[in-house]
């Protein structure tokens, strides 16, 4: 699990000068913009197609800790204990099904949501950038949500993604860590997808 979730050695890597980076990054941005369009237009079933069957999709909680402490003190660790959520594909499907019932009152009426995705960086590619089948990507999101009248939440944060290329399906996300820049969550709910 830690090998999948640990981006600490990848964060400082710069692959931008290597052959194939620009083409792959452009492809990735198109993928993310499609994902945002699907989510913001409530095409959840189509969005589910972008997620691999062995998905791990989680949002750690964070604590105020001294500078010298390591990551596991500040962030909850995937695969252990409690996070804001730690979903597999089944659970994500359940969340979509819940919205589709039409009686999920925290999302009924539906929220109005826009995802802004930026700072897309490929930090790992296997076997290489030009023939990549597996990649690790970091990016930023700004998610604006408004519902009913003035119930408005803005989530800002980072995503650490791992995607793989599948024959027939194209890129699929199999790991996503959603890092939000808050300790005590300043939102009553997390009913959206990041």
């Amino acid at each position: 699990m830690s090998a999948v979730s640990d981006f600490s050695d990848l964060i400082g890597r710069n692959l931008a000068e290597q052959p194939g980076y620009a083409a792959l990054q452009s492809q990735l941005e198109a993928f993310y913009f499609l994902e945002a369009d699907l989510l913001d237009n409530r095409r959840y079933r189509a969005w589910l197609e972008l997620l691999a069957d062995d998905l791990i999709y989680y949002m750690p909680m964070r604590a105020n800790v001294p500078l010298a402490h390591d990551r596991s003190d500040e962030f909850t660790t995937v695969g252990e204990g409690i996070h804001w959520f730690e979903n597999d594909k089944w659970t994500v499907i359940k969340r979509v099904e819940q919205i589709e019932t039409g009686i999920h009152y925290a999302e009924e009426p539906l929220s109005r949501i826009t995802h802004m995705i930026s700072n897309v960086r490929i930090v790992d590619a296997n076997p290489d950038l030009e023939t990549a089948q597996q990649i690790a990507v970091t990016n930023r999101f700004l998610l604006y949500q408004n519902r009913i009248v003035d119930d408005t939440t803005t989530f800002v944060g980072r995503r650490h993604d791992r995607l793989r290329q599948n024959a027939g399906t194209g890129w699929q996300i199999h790991f996503r860590e959603v890092i939000i820049e808050q300790g005590i969550l300043q939102a009553k709910n997390i009913t959206n997808f990041f």
Binding site: G81, T91, Y105, E107, D151
Partner: peptide, 25 residues
């Protein structure tokens, strides 16, 4: 249990999201 707790409880919990909505309004 932790997986069940997370999908049920708290702000991202599928059950308790709807409680928050009630208490807010």
């Amino acid at each position: 249990l932790r997986h069940y707790y997370m999908r049920y409880s708290g702000p991202a919990g599928m059950t308790e999201q709807d409680d928050m909505e009630n208490w807010l309004y």
